[in-house]
Amino acid sequence: MKTYSYYSLSIALIMALGACSSGNHDSGLPTDDTVIPVRVQPLAATDTAGTVTATGTFTTDDETALGFRSGGIIQQLRVKEGESFRKGQLLTAVEATEINTALEQAQLGQEKAERDYRRARQLYADSVATLEQLENAKTAFDAAKQDVQRASYLVGHTAITAPFDGYVLQRPANVGQVVGPGTPVLVVASHAKGGWLLKVGVSDRQWSAIQLGNTAMVTTDALPEKELHAEVVRKSEGIDPQSGVFNVYLKLMGAPSSALASGLFGRATIHLAQTSGVWLIPFDAMMDGDGRKAYVFVTADGKTARRVEVEVSGIQEDHAVVTAGLEGGGSLIVSGSPYLRDGSLITIK
């Protein structure tokens, strides 16, 4: 949005004074009774639909990052980037020696706890052990059984098998690398059966203006001179901590899967829903803009200028979109504004 500062206003006045001084000896400054010539345009509310331009990268609707339940040293990586795989196929595994040892220790602990529990029951039956000792032995035995179950679960997750038929998008890890729990080892997708998405980042104001179902046009260097139709299908409910923006997901309609790849750069023009009851005014008519607020001069009688505050929601080509402040009607002063004050006398050119 084009704004004018007090500094630029002063420069404009100085230039005007210089031009006036060459023809007469007056100061040239308009006084309260000076009639200032202006140009105007009628004020009429209209309906408009704005756009949001954003950039991002392509991804698939079912892109999945695979990692191990517990960390370890990667022992096997049987697929490479771009390779296809079948559901149930072994993709990667970690060294299981440590986890197997933990399972064996848990099983030994369970056997000891079971013996202690049987002995406590016999002693309690012979009135040698107390009820508390029997209950403590039973609790230790139950806890040992839970340890075995937990260790068995971890042993069962030392390998990753394919959850579906698909292919490898990324392989951020290598054999011999130490990875922690949940660290992505493979990023996979299922041949884009769910469709391609363009993930774009937008500001908080743009995020609030974009609605599910808004249409968009997408372009990418991978498909030069071709526009792809898309639709907003998902919005993030929180800010991305890495990029500091809000993510919006656009689903492509009928995009050729062979021409796209995950991570490719794309540009989107999102068409917002139509807004009713707004005014489109030239940038030159606005004064002292600050954020979403600015000032303009209007006239109702064609003889007196009135300074009003307006709220600006965005820009559209060479106009500003005003959503409030111009309900009084009349005409908008589009030239001569730098010389005006509230209540100045005017004449319409």
Rank of each mutant, 00 (worst) to 15 (best):
S10Y: 08
A16P: 01
L17E: 08
N24S: 10
S27I: 06
P30N: 05
T31V: 02
I36G: 02
P37S: 06
P42V: 01
A44I: 03
A44L: 07
A45W: 01
A49C: 13
A49I: 15
G56R: 04
F58S: 10
F58V: 10
D61K: 12
D61W: 07
D62P: 10
T64E: 13
S70V: 08
G71E: 08
I73A: 07
G82N: 15
F85V: 14
K87S: 14
Q89E: 15
A96N: 03
T97G: 15
I99M: 13
N100C: 11
T101G: 10
L103G: 10
E104K: 14
L108W: 15
Q110R: 14
E114H: 15
E114F: 14
R115T: 12
R121V: 12
L123A: 11
S127W: 05
K138C: 11
A143I: 12
A144N: 11
K145Q: 14
K145R: 13
K145H: 11
V148H: 09
A151P: 08
V155G: 10
V155E: 12
T158A: 09
A159I: 07
F164N: 13
D165E: 12
G166P: 07
G166W: 03
V168R: 14
G180V: 04
T183C: 04
V185N: 13
V187L: 15
A192G: 08
A192P: 09
G194T: 09
G194R: 09
W196S: 08
L198C: 00
V200R: 01
R205C: 04
Q206N: 06
L212H: 04
G213H: 07
T215S: 13
M217E: 13
E227A: 14
L228I: 13
A230Q: 13
A230S: 15
E231D: 09
E231H: 06
S236G: 02
E237T: 02
G238C: 00
Q242L: 03
V245Y: 05
V248A: 00
M253H: 14
M253A: 15
G254I: 09
A255E: 12
A259C: 06
L260A: 09
S262I: 13
R267T: 09
A268F: 05
T269V: 10
H271S: 11
G277I: 03
W279L: 08
L280N: 00
I281C: 02
D284P: 02
A285H: 00
R292F: 06
R292G: 11
V298T: 06
V298Q: 01
A300G: 12
A300W: 08
G302Q: 03
G302L: 04
K303C: 04
R306N: 10
R306W: 04
R307A: 01
V308G: 04
V308H: 02
E311T: 02
V312H: 01
I315A: 12
I315R: 06
D318S: 00
D318W: 00
H319D: 06
A320M: 02
A320G: 04
A320E: 02
A324S: 04
A324E: 02
G325C: 01
G329F: 03
S331R: 10
L332Q: 00
I333K: 03
Y339V: 01
Y339C: 01
L340T: 12
R341W: 08
R341N: 10
G343T: 00
K349M: 05
